[in-house]
Every structure is written in C-alpha cells, then in structure tokens.
Simulated scan of single mutants.
Amino acid sequence: MKWNWKLPDWPDFRYDMTELAPLEQRFLLSSGEILGAVHHVSPSERDQLRIDLLSDEAMKTSAIEGEMLDRLSVQSSLRRQLGLTPDSYPAKPREQGVAEMMVDVYSTYSEPLTHETLFRWHGMLLSHDRQLETIGAYRRHADAMQIVSGRIDRPTVHFEAPPSGQIPAEMGRFMEWFNRTTPGSAGPLPALTRAGLSHLYFESAHPFEDGNGRLGRALAEKSLAQNLGQPSLIALAFTIERERRAYYDQLEQHQKTLDVTAWLVWFAEVVLTAQQVTLDRVGFFISKAHFYDQHRDKFNDRQAKAIERMFREGPDGFTGGLSAENYLSITRTSRATATRDLQDLVDKGALNRTGERRYTRYWLNVGNNRKSI
C-alpha cells in the first residue's frame, strides 16, 4: 500500500483554493459573530462560559477515542488550572490530565510550536497511563505503527505510519511548516486550510505511542486560534464526535493521497458547524443568565435542583423533554409533591408543558429557545 508519506513528493499536499475561498470567508464572518455574542456575557459569567466550553471539548475529544470522562471532575480540574475558586469535587488523574492540556492549548496559543510543546501536552494527557513505554517523547518502538480493526488473526490495516526511526526528522519538518504558515510568517495560509492541513499532516506522522488523535485536534485548535489572534473556543471536538465515522473515513481516504481538496472542504465544513454550535451555546448561556435573573429566589430546594439539572444537560438536553419520572428521579420526592412542584413551575413561567397524562413533558422557558432540556 502506498501511504501518503511514501509518495515521492510528500509532504507537498495539493488542493484547490477556489473551493475553499468561500468557506474561509464564512469562517471569518462567523468568528466575528461569536466574538460579538461573547461580549453580551457579563465579565463575571465569562469564566463559567469558558469552563463550560472547554469541558465540552475535553469530554468529546476523549469520547472520539472511546474514552468516557467524569464531567464534574473535568470542570473541577479546569477551575484549578485557570486559577478560579476550586470546588470540592475530586480531580481524577485522567480528567486532570486532559484539563491541564486544554488549558495549556488555550493559554499558549500564540507561542510557536516546538517539540517541547507536544511533549508537554503528551505528558499532561497520558501521565496516568502506566502501560505506555514512552510518555512525553516520540515513539521509539521498532514495531510498525498501524491503525487496525477487526479480528486479531485477520486485522484490517487502515493506516501505517512512518517507522519510529523517521519520526524526529518528520516532526522537525512538520514544526518548520507549522510555524512558517502562521499569520505574519514567511508563508501564511488561510485559517481553515492551515488547520485542516495541520491535522492531516500530524495524524499521518502519528508520532506518539498513543494520544495522537487528541493531540492532532489540539493542534487544529491552536492553528485556528493563531489565525484568529485569540483562543477560538470553537466546539471542534464536540462536532467531530457527532461525525465520528465520517471523520475516520476521511482521514483513512486522505492518508493514501496528497490531493486533499476533499478533506479540506470536509474539515472546513465541520469547523463552520462547530462555530454555529458555539454560537448556540453562548446564546444558551445568556438565556440561562436571564432565566435566573427573572426567577431568582422563586424555587424551593427540589425545584432548584431539578432546574439546575435541566440546565446542566445543555442545549440538547433531555431527549423528548423532562417527564414527571425524570423529576422524581432527580428530587427523590413523592409523586404528589412532584405534581405540585411541576405545576408551580409552569404557573411561574419557568417551564412550558406539552402533552397530556403520561405523555406530559416539561421544557425550560428560555425565550424563544424551547429545547428538550
């Protein structure tokens, strides 16, 4: 099999800029919309918005690799890393590591990329893993670095990366390319083009024993932030996780060729979708603040707990709406009390109600945005 790194003109990727130009323009316009929306969040609330967005990204970049994290532990770790007042929830090693990496990507976005940057991220991400031979350095094993699936005795090889002995030289060339294509450097590239190329280029080198996917997505975030001149907070991993199968299919297809226009168009459209997700989440956060301003001190402890739980589900929320059974599970109260509490919340305008009897569902009343939360 001729993998892309075996082709004679590697790593000279080819692509049609005319197909990407309108997507690049949409990216810049949407970036302005996000910046404008964030300005509507009060300074005291921006820290929580940052925690919410970063924790979503930390959770989803791990979920893409099949790793499920404890959200509260991730958020607790993020608060500590950002120097905010910590809560009492314990920070677990795996969650602490990904939170530490996310904050480092966020806070050092403008710095040039170095080998030490990647080693630092890798160490943060995988310091808890006692099975890896090499942590905080490029892989050294002599075995072929392959991405496989299927039976052990008849595996399907989706990709084979360069041998470990080639990695220092490959990554030196990657560093030079990444830093040369930043805004204001010798060969700057548009935001989406550069982020898409950086991710595919890094994944094709696959320089670490484990964690390459998460680090590659962090690099795409760093690239976008450098082109914007500020941390992006774009829901990239959140959106890729929803398109996980297509994501792996696209990577596999374009690790066999240097003609990557289709990959860059696909990746650009994912980023544009991710921007809209971020806009929706900022709008949801603003609606949440207005909701609590309107209903402050109007709920009993049970109602407050249920409302907080509903908001914690985020814009996608409870599938199909909140049921009386959900309320009973959250509050551990009696059915009669749950019925009175829910009716009271409807009367106060905090919830909307749809359906009848066992099909009755409740929705947070947050302006025109009635989501199934």
Rank of each mutant, 00 (worst) to 15 (best):
Arg79Ser: 09
Arg94Cys: 01
Val103Met: 02
Ala91Asn: 04
Arg120Thr: 15
Val103Thr: 09
Ser110Leu: 13
His115Tyr: 04
Pro93Gly: 07
Leu82Cys: 12
Tyr109Gln: 01
Tyr89Thr: 15
Val74Cys: 01
Met102Lys: 04
Val105Met: 08
Gly97Pro: 03
Pro86Glu: 12
Asp87Cys: 10
Glu100Cys: 13
Arg79Leu: 14
Thr114Lys: 03
His115Pro: 07
Tyr106Ile: 08
Thr114Gly: 02
His122Ser: 04
Val103Trp: 02
Glu100Trp: 04
Gln96Leu: 11
Thr117Asp: 04
Pro86Arg: 09
Ser77Met: 05
Thr108Tyr: 01
Ser107Lys: 14
Arg94Asn: 00
Arg120Leu: 11
Val103His: 07
Phe119Gln: 10
Ala91Ile: 01
Leu113Met: 08
Leu84Met: 15
Gly123Ile: 00
Leu82Lys: 02
Arg94Ile: 11
Tyr89Gln: 12
Leu125Asp: 00
Gly97Cys: 02
Thr108Trp: 02
Gln75Glu: 15
Leu82Ile: 07
Met101Gln: 08
Gln96Val: 08
Leu118Phe: 08
Gln96Ser: 15
Arg80Leu: 12
Ala91Tyr: 00
Gln81Trp: 02
Arg79Gln: 13
Glu111Ile: 01
Met101Arg: 07
Ser110Met: 12
Leu78Asn: 11
Tyr106His: 14
Ala99Tyr: 01
Leu113Gly: 03
Gln81Ile: 00
Arg80Met: 13
Pro112Trp: 01
Tyr89Cys: 10
Val98Arg: 10
Ser88Phe: 09
Thr117Pro: 05
Leu113Asp: 06
Gln75His: 07
Gln75Asp: 07
Arg79Pro: 10
Asp87Val: 10
Trp121Glu: 05
Ser88Cys: 10
Arg80Ile: 11
His122Val: 12
Met124Phe: 10
Gly97Glu: 02
Tyr106Arg: 06
Leu118Met: 15
Pro93Asp: 06
Leu82Pro: 07
Met124Leu: 05
Glu116Cys: 10
Glu111Met: 06
Thr117Trp: 08
Tyr109Pro: 00
Glu116Gln: 15
Lys92Val: 09
Thr117Ser: 14
Glu116Leu: 09
Met102Ile: 13
Leu78Gln: 06
Asp104Lys: 08
Ser88Ala: 14
Gly83Ala: 14
His122Trp: 04
Ala91Gly: 06
His115Leu: 09
Val103Pro: 03
Val98Ser: 05
Tyr89Asp: 13
Gln75Thr: 04
Arg79His: 08
Arg120Pro: 03
Met101Ala: 15
Phe119Arg: 12
Gln75Ala: 09
Pro90Gly: 11
Arg120Lys: 13
Tyr89Arg: 10
Asp87Gln: 09
Pro90Gln: 07
Trp121Val: 04
His115Trp: 08
Pro90Trp: 12
Arg94Gly: 01
Gly97Phe: 06
Ser107Ala: 12
